[in-house]
Amino acid sequence: MADTILEIRHLSKSFGSHEVLRDIDFTVNKGDVTAIIGASGSGKSTLLRCVNLLETPTSGEILFHGKDVTGRGVNAPEYRSHVGMVFQSFNLFNNMPVLENCMVGQVKVLKKSKAEARENAMRYLQYVGMAPYINAKPRQLSGGQKQRVAIARALAMGPEVLLFDEPTSALDPEMVGEVLSVMQTLAGEGMTMLVVTHEMAFARDVSNHVVYMSEGVICEQGAPADVLGNPQKQETKDFLARFRKN
């Protein structure tokens, strides 16, 4: 039996009377790369933000190693330190240079020593190819560089699962590749990842589980070859057909 890290059960989320997510169910095992695809407004990002408790789910459970994290009295910051997140708009700390961006969480949240945090940060910055830029401020970097630093920042916290919220959507086309290749390497090394993406090639080649969402529900999920190659539902077929056209 695979080692289950995250289990989403009957998750629902409403903003006022507008129901964004309805009865979402899926599990993430250790080493899984799950791609969440779907049209804009189908609730993909909200789902990811719920998993990280940046949004409070209206009902349902999120089990992290079998423990529900949605209830009261759960230490949300502590939980979040185990679940890394990479945002569409990078969200690097503008007041710190690159190296400090990757250190501050380790020092303040994980209470590591500065030297240890620095060494760890350098390792991951080298991994994403941003080691020469440690003295640069985020505003001095290109989008792709920022996103790679953001990935290093998340990795430096030593997360058990990494969430990606459309990591390449805000990038110029020529920078998408550098970020995707980092993600691909990560996936190859067994990192557990949950990726909201519009990159169908990534979903097909890198992920081992694809979740297709439509209007707040999971329409279809399974192995990439099944969902992308041989969709069963009409919505999935229509969605994929639109991608094939362009």
Binding site: N52, L54, P77, E78, Y79, R80, S81, H82, G84, M85, F87, S89, F90, N91, L92, F93, N94, G105, V109, L110, A150, R153, A154, M157
Partner: peptide, 10 residues
């Protein structure tokens, strides 16, 4: 986004 980034690392 700065707040979210900070919250996301715990």
């Amino acid at each position: 986004g700065q707040t979210e980034g900070a919250m996301a690392i715990g």
